[in-house]
Design a protein around this nucleic acid. Structure first.
Lengths: 167, 167
DNA sequence: TAGGTTTGCTTCAAACTTGAACCAAGAGCT
DNA sequence: AGCTCTTGGTTCAAGTTTGAAGCAAACCTA
């Protein structure tokens, strides 16, 4: 089958998206690196844990939630552990399992860094968009994510993982 | 001033965006790595050069166009040069300058890899979006990019760089 | 309950990215 | 010309990411 090339509109959209994505991720990484000494992903890990029940999550769940590979998460958590911001516990129900726990220090760090981070996200993104555009962005993002996950889609509600606290 | 936290809509949009961006970039990187043995950025470099006049561009212009840092570009071009896909020329008007040139082999490689890449972009992104959404995505991306560039904005049409070909 | 497969996570080497430091060449004074 | 400041590009060390192994604990299925 002959290639369906991108239309001019699609090309423009694609290039604009790539550029914006680079610029945005850079801006956010830079701000967090400055202000909290860690890249965006690491902050996301802390932030995700801070909202989880008992501030703890299994590695795999964390990786899945953040859409990153497990080796990447392992590396990140190892560093955050060295910094004293997270700890690891083993799961007593599944001895293979490893659970990341946000320490008090980690929680404090999230709370300290959050305002600056939010301010950056706001000024770089939401201050530039109309409320309709915010909705559109969500729609578009979901469409993309849904499409890319349906292949890998472990959407099996039964066979659920162990309880979050796992304790 | 007290932090203006994200509204629930903004939070949803932000998270959806982060997830989609990760998934999309991963999918594209994976495909290109498989099919062309290089990450997305490297392909973008080749692709950008392929459309430039005389297939050549100054390093700084290339870095600016792709919104990446110069060290990153230097590293990438060094590798692509080792692979024989690009070459470097020095600019005779500005002896500091370095110009990346797409080789014939590089051009062939872009042409070989393009269909698969486009197919991936299409199936991951554009097949999922309505024409209106494509327009919205472009708008949103431009709003973000414009906002983030106005600080750094070298939007000075005079004081232009040397001619693209620089020869 | 033994054997084979899958799952959860880590480890490893190689590739990539980052920010600071560096160097040489242009530009703007005086 | 000489001096300084900026610009274009690379280099370097430290940090991060990747994909392929590796390993042990579950999960079959017989």
């Amino acid at each position: 089958m002959t290639t369906r090339w991108l239309t001019p509109e699609e090309q423009r959209a694609w290039r604009a998206y790539i550029a914006a994505a680079h610029l945005l991720e850079d801006a956010i990484d830079r701000q967090l690196q400055q202000d909290a000494g860690m890249p965006h992903l690491y902050y996301s890990i802390l932030s995700t844990l801070s909202e989880a029940p008992e501030r703890r999550l299994r590695m795999t769940d964390l990786a899945e939630g953040l859409k990153i590979t497990r080796p990447r998460l392992t590396y990140a958590v190892t560093r955050l552990e060295k910094d004293g911001l997270v700890g690891r516990e083993s799961c007593r129900w599944d001895k293979r399992g490893s659970i990341a726990v946000l320490t008090d220090e980690g929680m404090a760090e999230v709370e300290r860094a959050a305002p600056g981070h939010v301010e950056t996200v706001r000024s770089a993104l939401f201050d530039r968009l109309s409320p309709e555009q915010v909705g559109q962005l969500e729609e578009i993002s979901r469409a993309i994510a849904d499409g890319l996950q349906e292949d890998t889609g472990d959407e099996v509600p039964w066979r659920r993982r162990s309880s979050p606290s796992c304790s």
